[in-house]
Design a protein around this nucleic acid. Structure first.
Length: 246
DNA sequence: CCCTGATTCGC
DNA sequence: GCGAATCAGG
């Protein structure tokens, strides 16, 4: 597959949005993570916190001859590589294929800049009960606070891990008016609707509550007032009948 | 092991 | 220019 203007633009956007190279590769489809990184560098997009130390800010680096030899300026032994066509690992099925990883330690929030980052970054996926805006019951009672549910009361089953998509997301008619990952900017609500990987996964798309990454409605869901100190929260139901009383 | 981005270098 | 191979840190 070639780098059309469109694909390059997508790459740019996603890269600057803080998505990982793998995610971008998935999104584009037909390219590898390496291809994305390579292209990004060629485009001059580089520089994002890399796990690998680039700058030799170590003063000892110069002072250590042995280390200097291992430096990548001169590659030691390129050597002949016989037949080692790297097996591209067909489909590691049990991987999450989310556009914006919920678990995101990669939370792009901290990627760009501590300050203005909050608005641009893809958000962590909100608590499960909040993902269904039309759901009747709210279980969250505030930041970090959740009412324990009884055993028979569980609601979110196991999210089956969708396989990684190696094919470009086809714009379907019914998705035409939905807000896709690519449509996100700091002015529209990025509240996820549905689950990443589902065919109709999209984002809210309303105008944001100024200063927040969500619209007014979803700000209300994302940022719930803390209960006053000393407020007793309803005790969780004892598991399986609770402790024996004697 | 998995992931990440960076770099090199044959094509 | 492209991207697989490789490196190196987390």
């Amino acid at each position: 597959m070639s780098w059309t203007d469109e694909r390059i633009e997508t790459l740019r956007k996603l890269w600057e949005n803080g998505l990982t190279a793998s995610q971008i590769a998935d999104e584009l489809g037909g390219v590898s993570r390496n291809a994305v990184i390579g292209k990004a560098h060629r485009l001059g997009l580089k520089s994002r916190p890399s796990p690998v130390k680039t700058a030799e800010d170590n003063s000892e680096a110069k002072a250590t001859p042995a280390k200097a030899g291992a430096e990548r300026t001169a590659r030691p032994a390129p050597v002949a590589k016989p037949a080692a066509p790297r097996v591209p690992t067909p489909t590691p099925a049990a991987k999450a294929a989310v556009p914006a990883r919920p678990s995101a330690p990669a939370a792009p929030v901290s990627r760009t800049e501590p300050e203005a980052s909050a608005s641009v970054a893809a958000p962590a996926v909100p608590p499960a009960e909040a993902r269904k805006p039309d759901g009747p019951r709210l279980v969250s009672i505030g930041p970090g606070g959740f009412i324990r549910q009884g055993p028979g009361d569980q609601q979110a089953p196991i999210p089956p891990a969708p396989p990684r998509r190696r094919v470009p997301a086809k714009p379907t008619p019914e998705m035409a008016d939905k807000t896709s990952l690519l449509d996100l900017n700091d002015r529209i609500c990025r509240w996820p609707m549905g689950h990443p990987g589902e065919p109709d996964f999209h984002f809210c798309g309303e105008a944001v509550n100024p200063g927040y990454p969500y619209c007014v409605d979803h700000c209300g869901r994302a940022f719930q007032a803390q209960l006053p100190r000393g407020t007793r929260r309803p005790p969780p139901p004892p598991p399986f009948g609770g402790p024996r009383v004697r």
